[in-house]
C-alpha cells in the first residue's frame, strides 16, 4: 500500500476490485442518460427556434448532429418531416439513437451493474424506462413535444441527482463520471459544429433579427442562454457564442470544463486507486487536448476551421473511449504475473 491509503479508504485492497464489466456498464449508463438529456434539449429547441430558410422547423439539423442521415433514410423518406423525425428519435426502437432504445440500453447497463448501484437509482431508472417503453406517438401529440422533452430532461436530472446523492464514491462512481463528461464534451462539439454551419452557410452578414434568434437557440440547446447573457450583455457575435460554449470555465456544458473534469477523474483513478499504469496514456491525450483549446482564441479556431477542429476533438474523444476500454476492460486480460499489485 502507498501512503495515500491512510487518506483514501478506497485504497483498501478489498475495495479495489471493481469488475471490468461493472466499470464499462457504469460508464455507458452515464453516457446514455447524458445523451438522452441532450437529445431532449435538441428536440425541444429545434421545434421552437430552429428554422429552415423558408421558416419551417429545421429538423434535418438533428440528423446531422447525430450523423444519423443514412440510418434515417433507410426508414423514412427525405426530406425529414416532423412526424417522422419524432418517431425516429423517440419511439423507434430499431433506431439505436432513439430515446426508447437509449433508455433501454441505460437500463440494461444499470441491470448489469445492479449489484453496485443504489436501490433508489435502480427504481428511478426502472420506472423511467418502463414509461419510455409505453410511450406512443399519440401520447406525444396529445401532450406536446415540449411537455415530453421537459419530462425527459427532468427524468434525466432526477437520475443524476439520485446518483449524486446515493452512489458510493469509489471507482464505479469515477467511471460513471468519466462517461458523463466524455459524453457532454462530445455533444457540445456536435452542437457547435452543425449549428455554426447551418447558420453561416457562406459567411453571411451577421446581426439581423433572425440571426439573433438563431444564435439564441444554439445557446438554449445547451442551457447556456442566460449564463451567456449575464457574461455578454451587449454583444452577441458568433465568436462570442462559440468561445463561450468551448472555453468558458464556469459553464457546466462547456468543452473546457468537461475536459478538465475528465482529466481530474483520470487523475483520481491513477492516484487513489493505484491505476497509474492504465491511466498514463489517457492522461497524456487529455492534457494535449486541453492544450489545443487553451492555446487558441475562439476567433483563431474559427478562422483556422471550426469544423475541422470539432472533428478533431470528436476523434480524440473516440480514441480516448477506445483507450479506456483497452486499459480497463481488455478483451484479453493480462496474465496474473503482469498485474501483481505492489504489496
Amino acid at each position: 500500500m502507498t501512503q495515500t491509503s491512510a487518506r483514501f479508504p478506497a485504497m483498501l485492497a478489498n475495495l479495489n476490485t471493481l469488475l471490468s464489466r461493472y466499470g464499462e456498464s457504469m460508464m455507458w449508463l452515464a453516457r446514455y442518460m447524458e445523451r438522452i438529456e441532450n437529445l431532449a434539449r435538441l428536440l425541444e429547441v429545434t421545434e421552437a427556434f430552429v428554422r429552415n430558410p423558408d421558416g419551417s422547423p429545421g429538423w434535418d439539423s438533428i440528423l446531422e448532429i447525430n450523423s444519423d442521415e443514412d440510418r434515417y433514410a433507410l426508414l423514412y423518406p427525405l426530406p425529414a418531416t416532423e412526424e417522422n423525425i419524432l418517431a425516429f428519435y423517440i419511439t423507434e426502437s430499431t433506431n439505436p439513437t432513439s430515446i426508447r432504445a437509449m433508455a433501454h440500453m441505460a437500463r440494461e447497463n444499470a441491470r448489469s451493474a445492479r449489484p453496485l448501484i443504489s436501490t433508489e437509482m435502480w427504481m428511478q431508472l426502472n420506472v423511467f424506462t418502463q414509461s419510455m417503453m409505453e410511450l406512443s406517438t399519440p401520447d406525444i401529440r396529445r401532450n406536446g413535444l415540449s411537455g415530453l422533452c421537459n419530462r425527459l430532461k427532468q427524468d434525466c436530472q432526477t437520475h443524476f441527482g439520485v446518483t449524486e446523492g446515493t452512489l458510493y464514491r469509489d471507482q464505479a462512481w469515477l467511471f460513471y463520471l468519466l462517461g458523463k463528461y466524455l459524453e457532454r464534451s462530445d455533444q457540445i462539439t456536435r452542437l457547435i459544429d452543425i449549428r455554426y454551419h447551418t447558420l453561416l452557410p457562406g459567411g453571411e452578414t451577421f446581426g439581423s433579427q433572425m440571426d439573433l434568434t438563431q444564435w439564441g437557440s444554439v445557446l438554449r440547446s445547451a442551457a447556456a442562454y442566460h449564463a451567456f447573457r449575464r457574461l455578454q450583455p451587449v454583444t452577441t457575435t458568433p465568436a462570442n457564442v462559440v468561445g463561450f460554449l468551448l472555453k468558458n470555465e464556469g459553464f457546466p456544458r462547456s468543452l473546457m470544463l468537461n475536459l478538465r473534469q475528465v482529466d481530474s477523474i483520470l487523475n483520481a483513478l491513477s492516484t487513489h486507486y493505484n491505476l497509474r499504469h492504465q491511466c498514463g496514456p489517457l492522461q497524456e491525450r487529455i492534457i494535449n487536448l486541453r492544450a489545443t483549446l487553451e492555446d487558441q482564441t475562439a476567433e483563431e479556431i474559427i478562422s483556422r476551421g471550426l469544423h475541422e477542429y470539432m472533428t478533431y476533438i470528436q476523434d480524440e474523444l473516440a480514441a480516448l473511449q477506445a483507450e479506456v476500454s483497452a486499459a480497463f476492460w481488455p478483451a484479453t486480460p493480462m496474465t496474473p504475473q503482469e498485474t501483481v499489485s505492489p504489496a
Partner: peptide, 18 residues
C-alpha cells in the same frame, strides 16, 4: 466472462487487472 482460469487458479477481471 468475468472469470478466467490461469494455472488452475481462478481470477476475476477487474479494472486493475486479474
Amino acid at each position: 466472462k468475468d472469470l478466467i482460469v490461469e494455472n488452475h487458479r481462478v481470477y476475476m477481471r477487474t479494472v486493475a487487472g486479474l
